[in-house]
């Protein structure tokens, strides 16, 4: 009885080992060769701050507006325009951006700035048109396009076009 039990255990063990052998990876036939050069540690994602949950599946991360590389002249005018805006001189800020656009008329970021300024001035329809113009020149700058669509959405909503606003927001959401 005891012998039978031992035998069945032995055969069971053999069967399990056999099965494992079939499913598992083939045994290595030679020793691994060490790769020369320093090993690069894999990129480590920063740990989430305590209390901050990352739910990627449902909410894609915010695409930050990539800081565009402007020429020195345009950068100076952008800074000046921003200064004017902070001083509540919106007309001056608009004039400065228009001046920058004369230097670089196909710079989509400048059209976007102009759109924001016009929005701030309450000229919502014009703001939306300027944002659309910025989109037409933005090529693959998704962050900028997203910002333009959000501005268009806000402009449309402010003039009572809720459906148009939703369309624009939908467009913005696709740009990641």
């Amino acid at each position: 009885m005891k012998m039978n039990k031992l035998r069945s255990m032995f055969w069971s063990l053999c069967a399990v080992l056999l099965l494992q052998g079939c499913i598992g990876a083939p045994a290595r036939t030679s020793a691994p060769v060490r790769q020369p050069g320093p090993t690069v540690p894999p990129p480590v994602e920063p740990a989430a701050a305590p209390g901050e949950a990352r739910v990627r599946v449902y909410e894609p991360p915010q695409v930050a507006l990539a800081a565009p590389l402007h020429s020195k002249a345009v950068q100076a005018l952008l800074e000046r325009s921003e200064q004017q805006r902070l001083e509540s001189d919106l007309d001056g800020a608009v004039t400065t951006i228009e001046r920058a656009l004369r230097l670089e008329s196909r710079n989509a970021h400048l059209w976007n700035r102009l759109a924001h300024l016009r929005y701030e001035q309450g000229r919502r329809t014009l703001a939306a048109e300027l944002a659309a113009k910025s989109n037409a020149l933005a090529a693959r700058d998704l962050g900028l396009k997203r910002d333009n669509w959000l501005l268009i959405a806000a402009a449309r909503r402010s003039v009572g076009d809720a459906r148009g606003a939703r369309d624009a927001e939908r467009k913005a959401r696709t740009l990641y």
Binding site: V94, E98, L126, K133
Partner: peptide, 13 residues
Amino acid sequence: QRYPLTVRQAVPG
């Protein structure tokens, strides 16, 4: 008086 830059999308791009 200023004569500002304005645009209106007339035709699809």
